[in-house]
Simulated assay, not measured.
Amino acid sequence: MDAESRRTRFEALAPGLVDPLRRYLARRTDAATADDVLSETLLVCWRRVDELPPDPLPWAYGVARHALANAERGARRQRRLAARVAVVDPPRESVAGPGDEAAVDVPLEEALAALRPADAELLRLWAWEELGPSEIATVLGLTPNAVSIRLHRARQRLAEELRKIGARAGHEKSRKGGAR
């Protein structure tokens, strides 16, 4: 493929990738890291435009997932270094300002945090990114059958965690009507 056709293909695919990838990353990390990882993901897509499948989004989610893992490893290294530096030169205390806390579904976040990271990621891909088992399989490098089985079990575990913390799962009906 010549340079002009590579560019044309990438320019046709990129607009369909940017917003879903931005949402995927925004739900998993802070805004600055999400922007950095999005840039890195698009760079990989550009470099490998010849290898992109006909439906590139699940493939791009996989790239973003790996890039995010790399960014998180780098952030952990930076935090360890900052902790060592803080012993020598402690930082001044700061007070959070208004609007610093994002609105989150606390029971859901608690329930997801109680799950194994692999289960939580599987549920996020299914619910937040609205991917089907075959697309999730592409992202995670699994078979669609394995994803279906793991997804079923992960949904059961999430429902159990929500029950433990006293929250209702979103699909459960009110007990006032008598049915559940």
Rank of each mutant, 00 (worst) to 15 (best):
A120R: 02
R80M: 04
L131C: 05
P133H: 06
Y24E: 04
K164L: 11
R23L: 13
G132P: 00
V44E: 04
D119F: 00
R77S: 13
A167S: 10
L158T: 12
R28Q: 14
R153W: 03
D89T: 12
V88L: 14
A127W: 15
D55A: 11
D119H: 09
Q156K: 05
A120W: 02
V37F: 04
C45V: 06
D50H: 02
R92W: 07
E130T: 08
G141M: 07
A169W: 14
A154C: 05
G99W: 11
L131P: 01
R79A: 14
R65G: 06
Q156I: 04
E121N: 01
S174H: 10
R76Q: 15
E72I: 10
R80A: 06
P56L: 00
W126P: 02
P91V: 06
E51A: 13
L17S: 03
E129W: 03
A75E: 15
T41E: 01
P58V: 11
A113Q: 12
D89S: 10
I165F: 11
L13D: 09
D105S: 01
R180F: 07
W128P: 02
P90I: 04
P20Y: 10
P58H: 10
T138E: 07
E160R: 06
G166C: 06
G177D: 12
A96S: 11
P144Q: 09
E172P: 00
R80G: 02
L151R: 05
F10H: 05
A83M: 05
R6A: 11
S5L: 03
E93G: 12
L17Y: 03
D36S: 11
R124T: 04
D36N: 14
A69D: 10
E110Y: 08
M1S: 15
R180V: 11
A169C: 09
D105Q: 00
G170T: 15
E93H: 13
L21A: 06
A12S: 15
T41H: 02
R79L: 13
A14E: 10
L162R: 01
P54H: 04
L158F: 08
D55N: 08
R124S: 04
R65T: 11
R168W: 13
I149L: 09
T33E: 15
P133Y: 03
R84T: 02
R47M: 11
H66Y: 11
L140W: 05
L131D: 01
D119E: 06
G62L: 06
E172W: 14
N70I: 10
T8K: 06
A75C: 08
L131Y: 05
E160Y: 04
S148M: 01
R6I: 08
G97T: 13
E4I: 05
V147L: 00
A12M: 09
